[in-house]
Amino acid sequence: MNKPASLVVLDLAILIDMYGDDSADTICPALSRFRSEASKYINQLQHAVVQQDHAEIARLTHSLKSMAGLIGACQLMEWSQLVEQAAKQRDQTMLANHLPELTTIWAALQTELASSLLLYGSADA
């Protein structure tokens, strides 16, 4: 399995492939919607981590993985996959190793999302 940090942050070629459309009318709403939805999941995830609620961590990272895979957020997808598995197996060591990475991954992704939205002329950048 690749380390999340070794993957690209956001690969728009994947998003285009997934949606089968490379127009700004498709890309911008998908990225904006993702940013808004993922933020909610990440907030909930941080709460679940504090509560040490493994089932909730697994559920949230499973959803994040789907969303990230849909728009080509490779690092976040890989990270979610690792954390989902660790949570399902209640692997505290693995969780302790990977959970702190989220801050960096999410910050990098937000930057990429903003620049991509700007590139495609979205007012939402």
């Binding site: 997934m18 949606y19 998908a30 919607r33 789907s66 969303m67 849909l70």
Partner: peptide, 12 residues
Amino acid sequence: DDVILMCDFLYG
């Protein structure tokens, strides 16, 4: 799908 983004994608 309980993930809104995914559900909207499928819907589209």
